[in-house]
Computed example of a mutant assay.
Amino acid sequence: MTTSTDAVPAASPRALARARRRQAAARFWRQYRSHRAGVAGLVVLALIALAALFAPWLVGADSQSVTSAPGGPLEAPSADFPLGTDQFGRSLLALLVWGTRVSLTVGLLAAFLSVAIGTLVGVTAGHFKGWYGNVVMRITDWFLVMPTLVLAIALATVLSRSLWTTVLAIGVTTWPTTARLVRAQTLSVEARPYIERSRALGGGHGHIMSRHVLPNVMPLVLAQTTLVISTAILTEATLAFLGLGDPTIVSWGGLLQDAREAGAVSSGNWWYLAPPGLAIAVVALAFTLCGRTVETVLNPKLGVSR
């Protein structure tokens, strides 16, 4: 008697790749959530992101209006205004929630622009090791020795004051650190034997950089992105505090600038200064905690204690 077995179809390469990615993501999350500091930072960022997303429903769509301000100028914290009011009588709590949107948006966009430039420069400089790599890295070194904030202020001063100018000013001045890290990782990847085999089989520059180098540097890029976001938020707040931000939008740095112009420091109106400053510090710390945890998970050799 003969027995027949049903043929089991072999999984396609794409299905296998998706399964490996799911396993890697699950393994990453298991390791990430074992770090209490990273989880705390992630929870804080989730709450702040929800506040920014639902700002119109939480504090009202007209809470930024000067003409319909519900309170008097510079009122101290009370039951009606938990964080007091600004010089126009607007609720500082409402302005703080609205400022979350701008500060997070600028931080994320500027960080992505900075990391994209740094990744492109780092990968190409590590792959093309001749005169191109030398010239690009000398330019990178020049940007590294120049004060980032001074360059951002100069660029924001030359261009028109807007949200996109702030994003551009931060993005094009904070990429050198990422470029040097990615270049070092690219050199390490291209020294591996399978890169030589790929070249021997006819793999061109684009194939090697996109199919072999870039996937291996992406974990480093991900960790660097979370760290750059906190720097971008701090730089945006500094530019807004110096009066180089968009005056038509509410941001945390803009609130500090308004407090300075209203004389909150000399008059002792601490409620005008403390909330925006604490919000900037908390968000920057939360992104830093997440970034350090991601870096530790992706590179266990760092050995950061939990």
Rank of each mutant, 00 (worst) to 15 (best):
T165M: 05
V115T: 13
L163Y: 06
G84P: 04
A154D: 10
G71Q: 08
G118M: 03
S68W: 08
T140D: 11
A111T: 03
A156H: 05
G99Y: 10
A169P: 13
R180G: 05
F81Y: 08
L168D: 03
L149T: 15
R180S: 01
G71M: 04
G71D: 04
S78Y: 07
T100P: 00
P82H: 02
T186Q: 08
A125H: 00
P147C: 01
A111L: 00
R90A: 05
S103A: 15
S68G: 04
D80W: 09
T166I: 15
L93A: 15
S103G: 09
V167N: 07
V189T: 12
S78A: 14
W164K: 07
T166N: 12
I153H: 02
L113Q: 04
N134F: 03
L155W: 13
L187K: 01
V172A: 09
P77E: 10
R101Y: 11
D80K: 13
G122R: 01
G133P: 03
M137L: 14
V115S: 12
R183F: 07
T173V: 14
T174P: 02
T166Y: 02
A94K: 01
L181D: 02
V150N: 03
A79L: 14
M137I: 12
V106E: 08
L187E: 12
R138P: 02
V182P: 03
V136F: 10
Y132R: 08
L96S: 09
R180N: 05
T119D: 07
R183L: 14
V158C: 05
W164P: 11
R180H: 03
L109P: 04
T67K: 08
T140E: 02
G122E: 04
A152L: 03
T157K: 00
D141T: 07
A152M: 04
G126N: 04
F143D: 09
A111D: 05
L93C: 08
R101T: 14
S160C: 01
G71H: 10
G72W: 04
T166P: 05
L104G: 08
